[in-house]
């Protein structure tokens, strides 16, 4: 059995066994969906932008993927001192394979969570423009998952203390989410804010998913995918490099 497969399978097994955590982690996106969705819905509609729920659903899916992927980075930090990671670091296996197995596993879990949220949005009334677009949208979601799973691996490999990770969560993950156009349109933004949104990989992810699912896109799906692929390659290489530098 392949090393990558076994490490990938491990992440998926752990996810599928953590039923309580799965339900709990749906809470946050559900709140955004419910509170913002129904709260700001009327305003959005009056501004002539259509149904806010339709607009927001891809954003909430993107948010879920981002958060789940970054949390797997926290798990890695804990793992490093108290768990399984040390076992992999001392095994006669190239670090690259270990990093790939973990990152793919983390990305898969993020996609699974994203899928769950997608189903929830459907229940709440979200309607994709076409059924054919859904598998394509999932490819883009998978790209987002890989990007942030790799980033989480890079961060998890570089930080030694839990406090460091709290800082990352507050000063990196939340800005990534809020500056991504997940909950507001990208048109007509003040110049500085617009600049920030362009630097955020999640912006292109959410825009791509939105483009495929409801036909509304700011950059064009092609550009979105191109940017995601490029950023993906860079982050995976960066993550692999940081992982190889771990001194236990």
């Amino acid at each position: 059995m392949n090393v990558v497969y076994v490490l990938w399978l491990r992440e998926v097994k752990k996810y599928l066994r953590s039923r309580v955590q799965i339900v709990a982690s749906l809470g946050s996106p559900l709140m955004y969906l419910g509170v913002l969705g129904f709260g700001l819905g009327p305003v959005f509609q009056r501004a002539g932008e259509g149904k806010y729920l339709q607009f927001m659903a891809p954003g909430v899916i993107g948010m879920t993927v981002l958060f789940t992927a970054m949390f797997s980075g926290i798990a890695m930090l804990w793992d490093r001192q108290f768990g399984f990671l040390k076992e992999t670091l001392v095994a006669p296996v190239p670090r690259l394979l270990i990093m790939i197995g973990r990152t793919l596993g983390g990305a898969t879990v993020a996609v699974l969570q994203g899928t769950l949220i997608f189903v929830v949005t459907l229940i709440a009334g979200f309607r994709p423009a076409s059924l054919l677009a859904v598998p394509l949208a999932f490819l883009v979601i998978a790209l987002i998952a890989v990007i942030f799973s790799a980033l989480a691996t890079a961060i998890g490999s570089s930080i030694k203390e839990m406090q460091g990770f709290q800082m990352v969560m507050n000063f990196l993950v939340m800005p990534l989410f809020f500056l991504s156009g997940a909950i507001y349109p990208l048109e007509g933004l003040p110049r500085v804010l617009a600049a920030f949104t362009r630097v955020d990989p999640l912006t292109y992810g959410v825009d791509g998913v939105r483009g495929l699912l409801i036909g509304r896109t700011h950059f064009g799906v092609a550009l979105d995918v191109a940017v995601l692929l490029g950023v993906g390659v860079v982050f995976v290489v960066f993550g692999a490099w940081r992982f190889s530098k771990i001194e236990a």
Binding site: V6, R10, K13, G83, F84
Partner: peptide
């Protein structure tokens, strides 16, 4: 090696822990 701090995966079974080790060590 058995480290001072545990390096098992507590969310997996004993058998699964053994099996992963076996795969990692070819």
């Amino acid at each position: 090696v058995v480290f001072q701090d545990p390096s098992l995966d507590s969310d997996l079974t004993a058998w699964e822990n053994m099996d992963i080790h076996g795969v990692l060590y070819h």
